[in-house]
Amino acid sequence: MLTHNKGKITPKLASQRYMRSMLGFSLGYAGALIGVTYLLKTIANAPLLYILLATILPGLFLFGMLWSIWRFLREVDEVARHFIVQSMIIGLFGILALSGVWGLMELLSDEIPRLPVFWIFPAFFAAFGFAACFGPGRGMGLK
């Protein structure tokens, strides 16, 4: 259960910790992604196990980003938590609706370009960010 970290950390410090860890994990993810992509392109016909192992590294950074959000939700005050979760739900629903419609179009038509599942994660963060900036919780939690 999400509970406020009673008085142990101020909302401002929670925001700073969140921004720092998200920035770190995002940069790590971008670096790992570039590195792994480059590495696998240099190896012709890399075995599946090799590809699986190589993609675990960026996956760990993705997990780190999700953990940062989880920690932030536990540390921030209840009001900010309410609006952040609301923004996440708006972002999630937007992406679910969009991917559902697009997926159906892919099934029913060969003319629709196939979108890699890879884009779900960044698309969710973009939608979450958009909802946080312009949705009901704009201005909450990150100052």
């Binding site: 101020t10 909302p11 921030v76 309410h82 609006f83 909450m140």
Partner: peptide, 22 residues
């Protein structure tokens, strides 16, 4: 906000009725 251990934005959200506190 400091006395309640919540942010300034959170105080504003309660004052303006955007959020009902627990």
């Amino acid at each position: 906000g400091e006395q309640l251990e919540i942010s300034r934005q959170s105080v504003n959200a309660i004052e303006t009725g955007r959020y009902d506190p627990s």
